[in-house]
Nucleic acid binder design. Structure first.
Length: 436
RNA sequence: GCGAGCGUAGUUCAAUGGUAGAACAAUAGCCUUCCAAGCUAUAUAUGUGGGUUCGAUUCCCAUCGCUCGCUCCA
């Protein structure tokens, strides 16, 4: 179950309404995906779990939601203009290609095989568009290639409006865009993607410890939401693979069918960003330490995760197959906090109006407290299997006996075990199970 | 962007220079006292454009798209 696990998950995602190919009726568009009814619930639950853990359950991190379009100077200060633009030259002989800036003395000669290279073609990893309806070069703006800069440029606003004491952080969930050279592996690498990032400002002294603390904190977040520890690892970057701004970086990697790949990077960005923005904006990007009566440039620890990558990892990790008699039962063992639907209410017999009525009534009551659905479009066995594939942790079944004893059957997803619960106690029973 | 491969129902597969089939999935109904049961009915496909031809899903060309590989890193 490794080679075709990806295919099985992609197939389930389409069949059950988690993820669809974007623009599919037109043949699809490379590297773009749409989240369907269950997918958006799963993704929202992941973002909510992150927000709760990183913002709401802390008193030192503030949430923000900054604009995708930013002043072009931002990308000069960040280094993206230098690093994301180049000329690309192809070798027609050995089929490799090169950035012109990386080539040595002779820009026309392939460093691998010595053959002649093609003319340089403009090569740009940032999406470009125009602000305003008139397309003039003066109006060019970029879609942000990372959400981080939106937080750096608001550093002074946060100091002025919230007066936080170091260490403190900003958190943001939002879309970013990169013209990736090699998109692929389903939703793993796409050109439009969603990030969940923290910029944590801390004292320069002890920033190493703070960085280590965040690596642990973020690693445990995935484990607490049910990721199999064997599929998760940390990988510290070697000095030569560090980005230009980073002093240290650790990736949290998940074991996908295509290998261990990055879900989140935790970087120590030092004071690089604040100093860059000070240089380009002319504004002093410092924090005033009241006890020492001095201005300092805080260092920044950046835990930066991919929402779509996390969603894919949780899906892959939850996918299970079990033999039941001669059949294969497919289920998503999603953590209860992430499951798109918490409980499905099902009538055992849909041609008995009283049973249907009670089931619908129960579902309406449960909906007030958590995501619940009613379904009667198939036999009970098939309904259970559909909910298994959606990752629904509990099914509630109303049968003939319910009319007499006012009890229903609660069936648990992973064990398929069933218990009788009084209708009056049902919500309390499920809430207990869902929140413990 | 470059190279290779591939385009037939939702999915997996057939077939044919002359009305495009099946299985599973889906929908509706009947039936059914708990794990993809049964019966009946229904809907759904040759990516797009052009050429050859009396006739093209099939042959040819182009295009669009997908998959895989390549330096990216959420």
């Amino acid at each position: 179950m490794t080679d075709n696990l990806m295919d099985k998950v992609i197939s389930l995602c389409k069949r059950r309404g988690f993820i669809f190919q974007s623009s599919e009726i037109y043949g699809g568009l490379s590297s773009t995906w749409d989240y369907g009814p269950y997918g958006v619930e799963l993704k929202n639950n992941i973002k909510a779990a992150w927000w709760r853990s990183c913002v709401q359950e802390r008193d030192d991190i503030f949430g923000v939601d900054t604009a995708i379009l930013m002043h072009p100077k931002v990308w000069e200060a960040s280094g993206h203009i230098q690093n994301f633009f180049d000329l690309k030259r192809d070798c027609s002989s050995c089929k490799q290609w090169f950035k012109e800036a990386d080539l040595g003395g002779d820009k026309n000669k392939c460093p691998e095989c010595g053959a002649k290279l093609t003319e340089g073609k403009p090569f740009n990893l940032m999406f470009k568009t125009h602000q305003g309806p008139v397309e003039e070069s003066a109006n060019i703006v970029y879609l942000r290639p990372e959400t981080a800069q939106g937080m750096f440029v608001n550093f002074l606003n946060i100091l002025d409006s919230r007066h936080p004491k170091l260490p403190f952080g900003l958190a943001q969930i939002g879309k970013a865009f990169r013209n990736e050279i090699t998109p692929g592996n389903f939703t793993f690498r796409t050109r439009e993607f969603e990030q969940m990032e923290i910029e944590y400002f801390t004292y320069p002294q002890g920033s190493d410890e703070m960085y280590e603390k965040w690596v642990e904190e973020r690693f445990n977040w995935y484990l607490n939401l049910g990721i199999n520890p064997q599929n998760l690892r940390k990988r510290q970057h070697q000095k030569d693979e560090l980005a230009h701004y980073a002093l240290a970086c650790t990736d949290i990697e998940y074991q996908f069918p295509f290998g261990f790949s990055e879900l989140e990077g935790i970087a120590n960005r030092t004071d690089f960003d604040l100093k860059q923005h000070e240089k380009f904006s002319g504004k002093e990007m410092t924090y005033f330490d009241d006890t020492k009566k001095e201005k300092i440039y805080p260092h920044i620890i950046e835990p930066s995760g991919g929402v779509d990558r996390a969603t894919l990892a949780f899906l892959m990790d939850a996918y299970s197959e079990e033999k039941v008699k001669e059949e294969t039962r497919v289920l998503l063992k999603l953590h209860k906090n992430l499951a798109p639907v918490k409980a499905a209410v099902l009538p055992l017999l849909k041609n008995r109006p009283q049973i249907v009525e009670i089931a619908k009534k129960i579902s309406w009551d449960l909906k007030k407290s958590f995501a619940a659905v009613y379904d009667d479009t198939a036999s009970i066995g098939k309904l259970y299997r559909r909910q298994d594939e959606a990752g629904t942790p509990f099914c509630v079944t109303v049968d003939v006996q319910s009319l007499e004893d006012l009890q229903v059957t609660v069936r648990e997803r992973d064990t398929m075990e069933q218990v009788r619960v009084e209708i009056d106690n049902l919500k309390r029973y499920l809430l207990e199970k869902l929140t413990n």
